[in-house]
């Protein structure tokens, strides 16, 4: 191996260590410092347990929606020539370009008590802002680009000849999608879902604005971390962070296992 390659590797790994590994390892260390019993108490308080399940619930709704919508959008972008496609292409990236706090405020303006849709929905008995639907909406919004951006290039690369072949052989659009298109983009889709899941679990800015942060009701894990941190409950904040990291790791692990199983089949 040449010296320049070694240097390149050293820089890449060094950067990762400084930016990523050391802080995360430090969090884990700090989390476990008070001892397992204290950590367990900290993450089993009613507020923490509720925050945990709320985070899972939001991700469980937002990620399938993002996946479904992302797949449809990717198909429109890669396979059709409808007018307005370039507008859609630009709009998809909006959640990346705009700060999540701004997204939260926008939802607040639209669905809040004084907003455009808020009063109408309130009359129908649906409260969006300061409640779970608002958190889900905000999460769906920020997760939007992940699946689209991962799947679209793969769709473009594999081309549509195999799909056309399936069509001429008599396959319905759904059969073609399930038997040909979906297997071909599986890796891109899986990666997009992993990214979207990670983001759904970790989203803070947009959720922070629309949730109202009511403990035991609309407080997600990220909000709990922040609250404990600002209340000088550092040990509690570390414990909640550790829980977040554990969910993220479990998700990654699950996706890896699913993919490996898929690759064998």
């Amino acid at each position: 191996m040449t010296a320049s390659r070694l240097a390149l590797r050293f820089v890449a790994l060094g950067y990762l260590a400084a930016i990523l590994v050391v802080p995360v390892a430090f969090i884990l260390y700090k989390t476990l410092e008070p001892g397992p019993a204290a950590v367990w108490r900290s993450i089993t308080t009613p507020a923490a347990v509720h925050a945990f399940w709320l985070t899972i619930e939001v991700a469980a709704i937002a990620v399938p929606l993002t996946t479904l919508f992302g797949m449809v959008c990717a198909l429109v972008l890669a396979r059709t020539r409808v007018p307005g496609r370039s507008v859609l292409e630009a709009l998809i990236d909006l959640p990346f370009a705009v700060s999540p706090v701004v997204i939260g405020l926008a939802l607040f303006l639209l669905y809040g008590r004084e907003g455009w849709l808020g009063p109408t929905l309130a009359e129908a008995g649906i409260q969006v802002i300061f409640s779970v639907p608002g958190i889900v909406l905000a999460t769906v919004f920020v997760c939007l680009p992940f699946v689209v951006r991962e799947v679209t290039p793969v769709l473009r690369e594999v081309g549509d000849e195999a799909e056309q072949a399936a069509t001429t052989l008599g396959a319905s659009p759904w059969q073609t999608f399930r038997r040909i298109t979906l297997p071909a983009v599986r890796w891109g889709l899986a990666y997009g879902v992993v990214l979207a899941t990670a983001r759904a679990i970790g989203e803070f800015g947009a959720v922070s604005v629309v949730s109202g942060k009511v403990s035991g009701e609309t407080e997600t894990l990220t909000l709990l971390v922040e609250k404990r941190f600002t209340n000088f409950d550092l040990a509690g904040a570390y414990a909640a962070s550790g829980l977040l990291a554990a969910i993220a790791l479990a998700t990654l692990l699950a996706m890896t296992l699913i993919n490996r199983k898929g690759a064998v089949a």
Binding site: A162, Q164, I180, A184
Partner: peptide, 9 residues
């Protein structure tokens, strides 16, 4: 098709 359009999987 010219480029076979084989179902790779």
């Amino acid at each position: 098709f010219q480029h076979y359009a084989a179902f790779k999987r």
